[in-house]
Design a protein around this nucleic acid. Sequence first.
DNA 1: ATATAGATAGATCGATCGGTCTATAAGTGT
DNA 2: ACACTTATAGACCGATCGATCTATCTATAT
Lengths: 187, 187
Amino acid sequence: MSVRTRPGPRERLLEAAHQLIYSQGVNVGVDALLKAANVARRSLYEHFGGKDGLIVEVLRSAADTDAADYRRTMDAAGDNPRERLLAVFDRLGEITAMPGFHGCRYLAADLALTDPDHPAHEITRDYRRHVHDLLRCELVALGHPRPGRGADQLLLLIDGTLAAGATRPGTDPAAAARELAERVIAT
Amino acid sequence: MSVRTRPGPRERLLEAAHQLIYSQGVNVGVDALLKAANVARRSLYEHFGGKDGLIVEVLRSAADTDAADYRRTMDAAGDNPRERLLAVFDRLGEITAMPGFHGCRYLAADLALTDPDHPAHEITRDYRRHVHDLLRCELVALGHPRPGRGADQLLLLIDGTLAAGATRPGTDPAAAARELAERVIAT
DNA sequence: ATATAGATAGATCGATCGGTCTATAAGTGT
DNA sequence: ACACTTATAGACCGATCGATCTATCTATAT
């Protein structure tokens, strides 16, 4: 068992789809995905059952990665809940400034998949609930009077930041949101 | 010149596309648009030059309608800039509660049209600039120290409200955003 | 060495995509 | 009555869609 084995078709497909679906949207063709991953057509259907299954797995793994990023960001900010929450918006400033950034992949998926029964919606809903819980937990530690509502507001600021970062580049939405987040935290 | 003439193919197509593109996304098929509008295939290309031209005109007319809605909402709230701005968020509460609501059509278009050169992006950009100006104008009247930044924040709250209204129904994001808007105004 | 499972390449399927075309019908102005 | 513009219906185009299939190759395990 070499540690240098080439990733299997499942991993290559997940990684290529992660990139391509974000840059091209969920309507990117299967052929483009297979070509980018250098994977046989059949492997897609063996591992994911179809394009929809691949989309779901891409979102699921991305959600794991992003949730870990939230935790890492907050932990790096120390123990003070106020600093931990504000660090999220500093991190958003980095994210929205990254070269290929063009919006929140979960929101893009929800808006593009107009079938409300598409299994991808469950993934994005769970992800938002998870982030909401992370935020609420910090607000509870702060003694916030309405931590649930406060987390709603912080999550709204996050979504607004990612939207503005995509549609109004150059306006530094993360900094604008951070100012408002301070008000939420100070409540 | 009867006032009761059936709308021409251009109007029917615009109206049908307004509905269908919002509910099904910009990737809805040309056939579905033609069928919904009861319009001949050729009429689309005569009046709009193609599907992209139709998309652009749909967004342009929607932007006019929505801009008028902003003005009407604020004017109905009276002369006090503070009340005029908060009325926007009350109006967002109505909009996000409407039956078929599932997000901001302009953001959906921007995220779905991954080609940055698509002419639709210019329409959405102008629309956001227009709304930003409306907001900034009220903040100037209020003597806000940084009306541009304040308008950035209000627009971010609007986008966040529409995103949360689509992805987290039942959380009353408009009310949550209104609370934060009060802080922006009070600054 | 051989059997088995997994991966590859690629033909093929019916459906749909956006767009162009011809031909006919309906309405308008002269 | 006539010409002209506009709209209609629908065939047709090449391209692409997601999905299924056969056939070949390869790696691993026994």
